[in-house]
Amino acid sequence: MFHYLLKRIGLSVVIVLCALLALFLLLHLIPGDPATIALGPRATPEAIARYAAKMHLDEPILLQFQIYLFNALSGDLGVDVFSERSVTRIVLEALPSTLILAAVGLLWAALIGVPLGCISAVRPNSWFDRLTGVISVATIAIPSFLVSIWSLLVFAVILKWLPVIGAGEPGDLADQAYHLVLPAFAVGLSWVGYLARMVRASMLEVMNETYIRAAHAFGLEPRTVVFRYALKVAILPTITLIGIGFGGLLSSALFAEIIFTRPGVGKLIYDMVMNRNFPVVQGAVLITTGVYVLINLGADLVVAWLDPRVRDSL
């Protein structure tokens, strides 16, 4: 276990370092003054001078990278060009809202997709299975930004059932939840299809295993066999896939924020790109990468924890 943990965490660290290196190289390989590039066209000359001094732009490039790395790892991602607030603070303030959106999107998708997949697998080729198949393919095929735009049009603009924009009154949970409905729907919709398909495929495989037959032979209730036996094994590859697919989920959340003008990392990046506020953009990209790596790691650890075979072989 210990060994495995170390390896997985090591790998995650390497990925984050690569992201840092890529960003650093980008700044320094583009012809021109790195300070101007890093801070963007809207930076004041004083800010550029301060940046050059802070990053030791006159030192050899290796030392520069070391400084850059050290700053990034200690949480200093620079300051906003306009307000001079810490980029880390700005991004971390926006992050929870994005994570909540992604999580709620995934959650409702799982609550619907996983049972759909299970029931399809228990009755393969039934009308239910076929219908689920069609729905799944349809939801997977529609890009999430289209879902966002259309659901915005239909439910908010035309039917006026749900609010068009914003995240709701701060402190008013009901209002916030109300505002979360449409974006979460848009973010999660394609995951209903994904999860139903994935769970169905791995359930079909597991339902053929001898231990499922054995569970029936012991006279267990069919519900126990499907949900407490088969699903318990079939969900493992699905969790790994969720970890891998989380990047996609994040990007749908970012788009949804832009379309629904909800505060969050997506909205932040969009606004800052519009304002040419580059340090914030870079910081947001880095932190999003970090979050993605963390979620992946988490998914692997959950699988390892759920599967005693994996737990022991580590």
């Binding site: 001898t210 569970a215 012991f218 036996y229 318990k232 075979r309």
Partner: peptide, 29 residues
């Protein structure tokens, strides 16, 4: 099944669910 007639399988590795401890399997039975 299970109460009046039960089965011992050929390969206990594939016929016992890998993700449940014997305690859980026994409680289930």
């Amino acid at each position: 099944r299970g109460r009046q007639a039960s089965i011992v399988f050929q390969d206990p590795m594939t016929s016992q669910i890998p993700v449940k401890s014997y305690r859980q399997q026994i409680i289930d039975i």
